[in-house]
Amino acid sequence: MINFHVEDTDFKLQQKLKLKNWLKSVLEAEGFVLGDINYVFCSDEYLLKINVEYLDHDYLTDIITFDNSEDEELIEGDIFISIDRVVDNAKTFRVSTEHELRRVLVHGVLHLCGYLDKTDEEEKLMREKENHYLQLFL
């Protein structure tokens, strides 16, 4: 089950059911089964505290994904998304906030599927996957 939560921001998510169905279809296309995924939409400050406390990174980021999966096929995790970063990145990349939010939502799911983005090669594959699945959001 995919759950959406809000912390430290007044963000209101649109098209919840459509997003849940789309994200579930991404997992299935990647060969996984949906367990419990919690998305938490929050502020820069909220996510920075998590970044410092759990990852020892003292910088802003748009997303942090915690993989809670105990099974190779069943995907479970907590995905924290800074709405402040999403809005700023949408302006930077000249896309709608909705488009950038969907990119970040699928980015988190792809991390839970095992995709990384630390090297140039990994990042290239991650972007290709994101773009592929963004095109399937109708």
Rank of each mutant, 00 (worst) to 15 (best):
R94G: 02
K18G: 05
D8M: 04
R103V: 12
I2A: 06
E30R: 08
Q15L: 14
E130S: 11
L47Y: 09
V26P: 02
N131D: 14
E53R: 06
L101Q: 04
E30D: 05
I81M: 03
I64N: 01
E30V: 01
Y46V: 00
E122T: 11
L23Y: 04
K20F: 02
L74T: 12
R102L: 09
K24D: 10
V26C: 05
E53S: 06
Q15W: 11
F93I: 15
T61Y: 02
I37K: 10
H99I: 15
D10H: 14
L138N: 15
F93G: 08
S96T: 14
E130F: 09
D8G: 00
N21Q: 13
K124E: 15
I81Y: 01
K118V: 12
L136F: 08
Y54K: 03
E123G: 13
K24S: 08
D84E: 08
H57R: 13
L136R: 15
N51W: 04
S69P: 04
T119K: 06
T119G: 04
H5T: 11
F41I: 09
E130V: 15
Y133A: 01
I63F: 03
G77D: 00
S43K: 06
L19Q: 11
S25I: 07
L101G: 00
E121H: 09
I83Q: 08
D117S: 10
G108I: 14
V26G: 01
L125W: 08
E98V: 14
E123P: 06
Y46F: 12
E30M: 04
D67K: 12
K124Y: 15
M126N: 02
K129M: 06
N38Y: 12
L101C: 01
I2K: 04
L27F: 08
E121N: 05
F80I: 02
K18P: 09
